[in-house]
Design a protein around this nucleic acid. Structure first.
Lengths: 246, 246
DNA sequence: ACCACTAAATGAATGGCATTCATTTAGTAG
DNA sequence: CTACTAAATGAATGCCATTCATTTAGTGGT
């Protein structure tokens, strides 16, 4: 009990506890005490948190704001999650189900990794504040995350990876993906040396030429500087790891 | 004025504004009003922040705690930095000077990159809360950071990299380094699937075999799981990027 | 020598935040 | 009927970054 309350359905995650704030104008407040029908559950909290994040960003994700969206007192949340960190874990695990692992099983190992890595990066580029949470998250209590690892592990195994290289390879790819997700959110002028440009001639020249290298792919899909760097690194990792297979 | 106050010396960064709290028992408080000799400066704030972090971690780095270490009222800090974020930038830039770029110029490009990447990862593994700050930090107001980029850019240029590939290559390496820094801090049992192990056979097997792969290097230098993954990824990137050179 | 200005400190707010606790009410097991 | 547990409210609590009015000290100009 206590943890199994909402894991039954798995996917839908948008079931109970909606509409009150939407249908009623949020007018008459609930009186104190347990309501006849439960207002909150983990699935509802998760989807409300996602809505809130997409509207207001992670700065706007406060327990108070979350409670307001759910038309509930902030303290009520603590009957369902132990802390704000818990809420972030719920969100994180939900996002993992959005990562595209469909290539494993169908496509070649190389193409499967490409599809997986790009979608993984894209998902978390929109949620970089979760990266410190994920990167250190024991997988135990994150079913979607575990499911992703299982699919990817099987893909590597089927591709002929020696057993003892599978986890390190995945970890290395993930590290690259997390770092690259930050890169997506960096400002365009991140490498503008400003007034110190004269004292850094090599760097300044390299930045200038990378910009002109970009012009070729202007208006293209995946043509931002962050995409160029990601593609370059990813292809190197795929080539390097591909050579490990027997 | 206003920004140039402490950039003069560059390296030492441990000069002014010390000892007051250490020598005097912190007994008699300073009376209000500007003191004859300035108590605070950026170098002092930076080194106090570093001390505080090493003693109490980043959770312990609060403006109040920092003020206490410096024997000053919290509001006094705001005469020297605009925000806590500013303090983090000072710390970040100082840490960049600890990254070992000495390989560029002496060693082969491969060895220089190895030295640089390992030390970069090691430094920030101890300071992961700064990663979200760095990854998105315009380089303009971070002199040490800029200096590092200059040295590395020159190393890549001298090694025969085409100009338009230098920045993307460095960015890709950095992304991998940042992600890998998190990995160092992950708990040992991060991949323990717990009760769900039966439903994830491929993943569970891979985790088991990666553990036994580790035993070989038990007690070794750079033998932790995070080190294995980092080496694997780094060597793949070096090999892949090395092929770009003309 | 005086005056205006700026720089650097104190100390007292301010508002936001996560979290806790006492209380109330509703279902449920014996 | 009676405990007990679950799920809500609402009123604290304590911490945190930041701001502001005030005080004092040095500095440049006349």
């Amino acid at each position: 009990m206590l943890e199994t309350t909402d894991e039954r359905a798995g996917m839908p995650a948008l079931s109970a506890a909606q509409g009150r704030a939407a249908t009623s104008g949020g007018a008459q407040k609930r009186r104190a005490g347990r309501p006849s029908a439960a207002v909150l559950d983990k699935a509802g909290i998760t989807s409300a948190a996602l809505k809130l994040v997409s509207r207001k960003g992670y700065d706007g994700l406060t327990m108070a704001a979350l409670a307001k969206v759910l038309d509930v007192a902030p303290s009520a949340l603590y009957n369902h999650v132990a802390s704000k960190h818990d809420v972030l874990l719920l969100v994180e695990d939900h996002l993992m189900s959005l990562v595209d692992v469909s290539g494993f099983g169908g496509s070649s190992w190389e193409d499967a990794v490409r599809t997986w890595a790009w979608s993984y990066r894209d998902v978390f580029a929109e949620h970089t504040p979760l990266i410190p949470v994920i990167a250190v998250l024991p997988v135990t209590d994150a079913p979607q995350t575990l499911a992703m690892y299982e699919t990817v592990s099987k893909g590597f195994s089927d591709a002929g990876f020696p057993q003892d290289r599978i986890v390190p390879s995945i970890v290395a790819l993930e590290s690259f993906i997390f770092g690259s997700a930050y890169d997506v959110t960096a400002p365009e002028d991140i490498f503008d040396a400003g007034s110190m440009a004269e004292s850094t001639p090599y760097f300044t020249a390299a930045v200038r030429h990378s910009a002109s290298g970009q012009e070729a792919s202007a208006g293209q899909e995946r043509g931002r500087p962050a995409d160029t760097a990601f593609r370059l690194g990813l292809e190197a990792l795929i080539a390097g790891f591909g050579a490990i297979r027997k």
